[in-house]
């Protein structure tokens, strides 16, 4: 379980998160939705242990996130793979650090994502690199999977491949997947829980099906409504 308790974080004058409280539990796919700069990436970085809260606590299974890095598979928005790496070299490197690495799953996902082991990270398209990044986190049986903007700047077909691979790789009941994106369309039917965040605050959160039932609206429409409402308060 991941817990945020009154978490605030600022970067210089910019307030990234403003006393955020939330929980993520195993067996769920959660979507964190919000416009650019809403604080989505900061949430991911706090869980990955590469940002620290100014106030409040972030706990992973009751511990400091940095002590639990073994349990987290983190896909940052940024391209974080060495440009000279082949996909295979990246896989071999990463596999030495995580006991949950599964070569069988890696081999299975390669053709599924139309990837080749010999691809060089610095020489492939953005879409292919996005898929490589995804493959490298899905090949782990990590309890927590963080996907930060996995679709940004990616063509439609590749987005579908990515969404398919997430479903294929998802292990029900055991894994918590958190996907942050400002493009809800792609994962409307993928997420079970949703958190709408804007200006560092949670504007709305809950069960996706429940929200559809109550409001007779899609998540995209709900987001528009929530954020329009949120902006009026300023």
């Amino acid at each position: 379980m991941i817990e945020f308790r009154n978490v605030s974080k600022r970067f210089g004058p910019v307030v990234a998160l403003n006393s955020v409280n939330m929980e993520f539990s195993a067996g769920n796919i959660t979507g964190i939705f919000g416009p650019n700069g809403a604080g989505k990436s900061t949430i991911m970085k706090l869980i990955a242990g590469i940002n620290y809260p100014d106030q409040g606590d972030v706990k992973l299974d009751g511990e400091n996130p940095r002590a639990k890095r073994q349990s987290v598979a983190y896909l940052p928005e940024i391209d974080h793979l060495y440009p000279w790496w082949t996909l295979r070299q990246a896989a071999d490197f990463i596999s030495t650090f995580y006991s949950d690495w599964d070569y069988g799953r890696y081999k299975e996902l390669l053709p599924f994502l139309n990837l080749d082991e010999q691809m060089i990270m610095g020489k492939i398209s953005k879409g292919q690199r996005a898929k490589c990044k995804l493959l490298l986190v899905l090949a782990r049986k990590a309890p927590y999977l963080l996907l930060d903007e996995p679709f940004s700047g990616i063509d439609l077909l590749t987005r579908e491949e990515i969404a398919d691979a997430v479903i294929k790789g998802y292990r029900e009941g055991e894994q918590a997947i958190i996907i942050s994106t400002h493009e809800i369309d792609e994962i409307e039917s993928l997420v079970e829980k949703v958190v709408f965040i804007d200006q560092g605050r949670i504007q709305l959160s809950g069960d996706a099906e429940q929200l559809r039932m109550e409001r007779n609206k899609s998540l995209v429409e709900i987001m528009k409504e929530v954020f329009r409402h949120g902006n009026q308060q300023i």
Binding site: N28, I29, D164, I167, K168, E172, S189, V191
Partner: peptide, 14 residues
């Protein structure tokens, strides 16, 4: 089915 229609497996389970 979840993979076929690209839906959260928990939703299909429900």
């Amino acid at each position: 089915y979840a993979q076929m229609v690209r839906v959260n497996p928990n939703t299909v389970q429900r």
